[in-house]
């Protein structure tokens, strides 16, 4: 990336750096108008956040002295492209007793890494797998 990291001076992005914001379909912020909606040019898919915007917000959070918030937003950026049913499935798998063995969670982590490039989230989930094993969470819940 050639762009230097953003700082708190760039915030709020919609006000200070609207040039950096795009819809997932590549439209600029000022293309999102009521007229465009009435014409049918804008759909819900145009109104979701992009991974780029999340990384920019992560940079701002880090510049504001909030490294853990920054990490969360970076993990979030990796989930933008992950389909909703996969997101829900992985969440469900991480709940206590859903996975019956460590390997199920490790497989989900691998899929996030290999299929979606979610490196941070994959590592985070692998950490969970190790802890769950140590704390005996792979046991019957229902």
């Amino acid at each position: 990336m050639t762009r230097p990291p953003l700082t708190t001076a760039d915030y709020p992005l919609a006000e200070r750096r609207p040039d950096l914001i795009r819809t997932p379909t590549g439209k600029p912020l000022n293309a999102i108008t009521l007229d465009a909606i009435e014409r049918g040019d804008i759909a819900i898919a145009d109104l979701s956040i992009t991974a780029d915007a999340l990384v920019m917000q992560a940079e701002i959070a880090e510049a504001a002295g909030r490294p853990t918030l920054g990490q969360n937003l970076r993990r979030a950026a990796e989930l933008v492209a992950v389909p909703q049913d996969v997101v829900i499935r992985v969440y469900e798998l991480l709940r206590p007793g859903r996975a019956k063995a460590k390997e199920e969670i490790l497989t989900a982590a691998r899929a996030l890494r290999d299929d979606h490039g979610a490196m941070l989230m994959a590592a985070f989930i692998e950490e969970a797998a190790a802890v769950y094993e140590r704390r005996g969470l792979f046991r019957l819940r229902y």
Partner: peptide, 16 residues
Amino acid sequence: DDTPWSKAFLAAAYAS
């Protein structure tokens, strides 16, 4: 019915 990791995953999912 959760763990810190499942809730942190959900936190990232909302932000995403």
